[in-house]
Amino acid sequence: MTALVCGNVLLTVVLLATFFVTWRLTRQVRRLFREVAPAGALTGSKGPQPGDTCPSGPFRLLNGAAFSPADGREATLLLFVSATCPVSRKIIPIAQDFCRKERVDLIFAGDDASEVQQRFAQQSGVKADHFVNDSVIGRVLEVDKLPAAFLLSSEGVILSRGLVNSREHLESLLNAWESGFTTVQDYITHRKQQKIQTV
């Protein structure tokens, strides 16, 4: 009988110790998440920045129609991709799913030869009326690395921009716009300044 009581007491102590360790660990993980900076799309200093107006075009779509960033749509994600870029192939289905769930229009852009672009769009499951095939827009926006993304307002104003190769990068473009910070880097700088002021 005594052994049974001792066993129950020992089990209770171990259980309470487990609860305490779990509680401490949860607090540490929460603190770690507050300290770790979010992984955002890398924003370059070249070319038009958030707040600037995207060139109005019109630019040629693969189906021969014209596309203008300031055509009164909802927010539009303009994603520059290429048939020769393996990361572009990876990001296309991710961007399609992301924009469908976030209710953001998605327009792809590139400047390959028309036949190459048509084949690439078919292989990637992109409709011809959602693919800009025009070298001018890339030059004006100074796109030098792929895949590059620009989140545009219905008036064609750049809300956020950056290089994207994951869903988290795409989310960071929306987060930057919704939070009022043009980039995640601005958010990190703001957090550091807040810490300095509170010290």
Rank of each mutant, 00 (worst) to 15 (best):
V126H: 03
I188P: 05
L16K: 09
Q117M: 00
K127T: 04
T22M: 12
A149L: 10
D134T: 01
V29A: 14
C99Q: 07
L15P: 00
A3N: 13
C85H: 06
C99W: 07
V87H: 00
S82R: 01
G110H: 01
L10I: 14
N175S: 09
E35I: 12
N175Y: 10
S179M: 08
P55I: 13
W177K: 13
R103E: 08
V136R: 15
P58E: 14
R119N: 09
F181D: 00
Q118E: 12
Q96I: 05
H169L: 07
D112Y: 00
A149V: 13
G47C: 07
Q49L: 13
V126S: 04
G40H: 01
S82K: 02
D71E: 11
D186Y: 05
R60P: 14
T189M: 08
K195G: 02
R24S: 08
L15N: 11
T182M: 05
L25H: 15
A149S: 12
Q185R: 10
L106P: 09
T26V: 06
A95N: 00
P147S: 10
I188M: 04
T84I: 13
Q49I: 10
A121W: 12
G125T: 11
G180Q: 08
A66H: 03
N175T: 06
K127V: 01
A17I: 07
L146F: 06
L151A: 02
L62R: 12
P69A: 04
F120Q: 02
A128Q: 10
G44S: 11
C85D: 15
T182R: 14
K90W: 04
L25C: 12
G125D: 10
D105L: 01
A41D: 06
N133G: 10
P48G: 02
H130Y: 01
G125Y: 13
S45D: 15
V143Y: 09
E168S: 15
H169N: 13
I137P: 06
K90H: 11
K127D: 04
D129Q: 12
L170Q: 03
L25M: 14
Q123W: 04
P48F: 01
L11G: 15
L146C: 01
A39W: 02
T53Y: 14
P86M: 04
G44M: 05
L32E: 14
G51K: 06
